[in-house]
Amino acid sequence: MNTSKVNIKDLKLWYGESEALHGIDIEFSEKRVTALIGPSGCGKSTLLRCLNRMNDRIPGCRIEGQILLDGDDIYAPEVDVVQLRTHVGMVFQKPNPFPKSIYENVAYAPRIHGLAGSGSDMDELVETALRRASIWKEVKDKLHTPGTALSGGQQQRLCIARTIAVQPNVILMDEPCSALDPIATAKIEELIDELKREFTIIMVTHSMQQAARISDQTAFFYMGDLIEFGETGTIFTQPEKQQTEDYITGRFG
């Protein structure tokens, strides 16, 4: 079951002159939830953004090493970033639906990638995506109202629906619940639990309780190094490294 989906080999990353990641080796398993934890600036978000090459947009950012998705190097020169991003979707910290209708939000990516025409095919695709993001019941009667009019939690689930509409393999989540209240957070966590049946999910979170609640594996980063990586249950009860222990018990700095 635990086949490796994303394999990172000796990944180093620089922003200009400063090295932000110092040689990361990690394997993310297929159809599991991996949580990346660590204090701010430890490189976890940077690593996450390497996985769909969002860092390409940052001037002066360069990497060394390999990131293999199903065995293929995603930084190979002939790789089309646009194609990559249909395989590796991303959900952001702040819910950021487009200021368009709910329908348009979900239909946008399939349309620009030519996955469905605009007729009933698209209607079906939109409905499926919304259903899988467990938001269909709440929005089915107002598909043509603006997505920005939804509540924060609903917006975030809409963003997840938008992401899974193109059937990615991997979903990256950058602190998806940090702007949400506990109930909305619980709904997202429940959704993540559902989604891991089909998708490999890698999420950055600042809430250790959240990592403990929903992840199968946890990786602890500190100062651009991967300190410890293992089963979540083990990391949160008997971590091997002192730094991990200090961080998750709140003894840091």
């Binding site: 769909n52 969002m54 947009r57 970033v81 646009v82 194609q83 990559l84 991003r85 249909t86 979707g89 991303m90 959900v91 952001f92 702040k94 950021n96 639906p97 487009f98 200021p99 946008y108 990516a109 620009i112 990638h113 963003c159 938008r162 992401t163 193109v166």
Partner: peptide, 12 residues
Amino acid sequence: SIREAAFGLGAS
């Protein structure tokens, strides 16, 4: 965040 959303979905 709007740009990020679009880039994240693979828009050019």
